[in-house]
Amino acid sequence: MPSLFTRIVKGEIPCHKIAETEDFLAFLDVFPCAAGHTLVIPKQEIDYIFDLEDSLYEGLMKFSKQVAAAVEKAVPCKRIGVAVIGLEVPHAHVHLIPLNSMADMNFNNKLKMSQDELAEIAAKIREKL
């Protein structure tokens, strides 16, 4: 069965898209730790980030860096935190989280944001790419 993220890549589930290439997709987390929390994935469904071929892993990190720069410009924060956990969805992914304090990286304290709020943040980030 395809992962949730594969279904997003295929357009079966909508997302607040930030950026996309042939190999990668960045979109807002709908259950964010902080406003602007973005997920970056390879389109190829591979469960564990360290199972990615080196070129795909390096491409994912380079793409994540470009997206992080846009998030940092669009969302007031001190820096962008990066996390790779890999347990919640069986599809390699990178979390980019705007940080003003360590508490912003708390995965047990998710924000509740409306679809309109998420769409507005996504548009602001896309403008900075």
Score class of each variant (00 low, 15 high):
Ile85Asn: 14
Gly11Gln: 08
Gly36Pro: 04
Asp54Ala: 15
Glu53Trp: 13
Val84Glu: 13
His37Arg: 06
Gly81Lys: 03
Pro2Asn: 13
Ile49Asn: 06
Asp23Ser: 14
Ser114Leu: 04
Leu96Ser: 03
Leu87Asn: 14
Glu22Asp: 15
Glu72Gln: 14
Pro42Phe: 06
Pro2Phe: 10
Ala34Val: 01
Leu111His: 07
Ala19Leu: 14
Pro76Trp: 05
Phe24Asp: 01
Gly86Gln: 09
Val82Ile: 14
Val82Glu: 04
Asn108Glu: 10
Met102Ala: 09
Glu120Pro: 00
Leu99Ser: 03
Glu72Asp: 14
Ser114Met: 04
Leu87Ser: 13
Pro76Cys: 05
Leu39Cys: 03
Asn109Cys: 09
Ala74Ile: 07
Lys112Arg: 11
Ala70His: 06
Ala122Arg: 00
Ile46Tyr: 05
Leu118Val: 02
Ile41Gly: 00
Leu118Asn: 00
Ala119Arg: 07
Lys128Leu: 09
Leu52Thr: 11
Glu45Thr: 09
Ile13Val: 14
Pro90Cys: 14
Arg126Val: 07
Ile125Asp: 02
Ile41Phe: 04
Pro98Lys: 02
Ile49Met: 15
Asn100Arg: 10
Lys10Pro: 06
Ile18Trp: 00
Ala34Glu: 01
Pro14Ala: 12
Ile13Leu: 14
Ile13Ser: 10
Ile97Gln: 00
Ala19Glu: 13
Lys78Pro: 01
Cys33Thr: 10
Ala35Ser: 06
Cys15Met: 07
Ile80Gly: 02
Ile46Pro: 01
Phe50Thr: 12
Asn100Asp: 06
Leu39Gln: 00
Val75Leu: 07
Val75Ala: 05
Ile125Cys: 08
Pro42Asn: 11
Leu99Thr: 06
Thr38Val: 08
Ile49Asp: 04
Met105Tyr: 06
Lys62Trp: 09
Ala19Tyr: 10
Glu72Lys: 15
Tyr57Ser: 12
Phe107His: 08
Lys65Arg: 15
Gln115Thr: 10
Lys128Asp: 05
Val40Gln: 01
Lys128Pro: 02
Leu56Asn: 09
Thr21Val: 15
Gln115Val: 10
Ala103Lys: 10
Leu56Ile: 15
Lys73Trp: 08
Leu25His: 01
Leu118Pro: 00
Ala119Gly: 08
Leu39Arg: 00
Pro14Asp: 11
Asp54Lys: 15
Pro76Leu: 05
Arg126Tyr: 08
Lys65Leu: 12
Gln44Tyr: 06
Asn109Ser: 12
Cys33Ile: 03
Gly11Phe: 07
Ala92Val: 10
Leu99Glu: 03
Leu39His: 00
Ile13Phe: 09
Asp29Pro: 01
Glu120Gln: 10
